[in-house]
């Protein structure tokens, strides 16, 4: 029973001299929402493609539902719903035709697919666009259709590569809501993202990746607890003075990070720290107290910001 749905050990992918994925280990349990967080080029998409049986690993072992993608590629792909980073909907077809033909690629019968189409259109909130050509849809609609399309084969695992990149905030929230529903239905979700809020919202557990390696693995809350403080105080002195202030501020905070435009001071109580600084006669141009996020975890682990 405890056999994980996906198990990777020493998973490695190289392209010539370049190591895209560098010996990573992870397990994904059934029904889990599992995230890959990291900047562009961290190896997230490559890992997803290997799991999706559209890329062959260089070394290591990988089993998905007890099968090896190298041996049983088509059988594994039959279990998966794939939502790629760049939409690859069929722009020459209508919304419902897109779902129909995608089901046919899996070999599903027309009667089976036609029964599913209304249900999927409702899920994607695209009932009124049924006969619309895909070209005429907005970015958010296209992404929802891509998800609906990937569900036609009733996949056990849904793989989403940067699902909300390029979408406006409202479209993102609609999409997140749809993904929550799938999770409630027991679909295992694999999500790559470089948005920490998305990872915090959607993932039960995640791995933080950088340069092909896993930097940390846990639930978002636990990662924040382990690698950051409860709160962060962001202060700006203007680019000239940031550097000289760092040495003065360093003893006051638990940890300090210097970014090009601001200084991050880590503390359990941000307001209290700000008062301490003011008591020393230091007055930053602007200050902001916020809760720690996965962004701070990433900064701690790699010394770099996620979105630059």
């Amino acid at each position: 029973m405890t056999e994980p749905l996906i198990r990777a050990r020493g998973l490695t992918k190289t392209y010539g001299d370049f190591i895209a994925v560098d010996g990573i280990d992870f397990d994904v349990a059934k029904g889990e929402s599992f995230g890959f967080l990291g900047p562009n080029g961290a190896g997230k998409s490559t890992t997803m493609r290997i799991i999706g049986a559209t890329s062959v690993r260089t070394s290591g072992t990988l089993t998905i539902l007890g099968k090896d993608p190298e041996v049983n590629g088509p059988q594994i792909r039959a279990h998966l719903g794939v939502v790629p980073q760049q939409d690859n909907l069929d722009s020459e077809l209508t919304v419902s035709e897109n779902i129909f033909i995608y089901g046919r690629y899996f070999g599903l019968s027309s009667s089976f697919i036609n029964k599913k189409i209304p249900e999927l259109l409702e899920f994607a909130q695209l009932e009124e666009k049924k006969y619309t050509k895909v070209e005429a849809l907005s970015g958010g609609m296209k992404r929802r259709l891509t998800i609906a399309r990937s569900l036609v084969s009733e996949p056990d695992i849904l793989m989403l590569d940067e699902p909300t990149t390029g979408l406006d905030p409202q479209a993102r929230h609609i999409l997140w809501d749809r993904l929550f529903r799938l999770k409630e239905q027991g679909v295992t979700l694999l999500i790559t993202t470089h948005y920490m809020d998305e990872a915090e919202q959607l993932c039960d557990r995640l791995i933080v990746m950088d340069k092909g390696k896993i930097m940390a693995e846990d639930s978002p809350a636990k990662l924040i607890k382990d690698y950051s403080t409860k709160e962060v105080l962001e202060v700006r002195f203007g680019s000239e003075r940031n550097q000289e202030m760092v040495e003065i501020l360093r003893p006051l905070a638990q940890r300090i990070e210097v970014l090009p435009d601001r200084i991050l001071l880590y503390a359990e109580d941000g307001e209290q720290l700000l008062e301490q600084i003011a008591a020393k006669g230091i007055h930053p141009n602007t200050s902001l107290v916020r809760r720690s996020s996965l962004e701070d975890v990433f900064l701690r682990l790699t010394g770099r910001t996620l979105v630059e």
Partner: peptide
């Protein structure tokens, strides 16, 4: 699911990694 059952039916046959028997789709 039906998709999995269909795919497993071809498993182990000659060229199953390259051919699902559905060019008509």
């Amino acid at each position: 699911s039906d998709a999995v059952a269909l795919s497993e039916r071809r498993q182990g046959k000659f060229g199953d990694k390259y051919f699902a028997g559905r060019p008509q789709q």
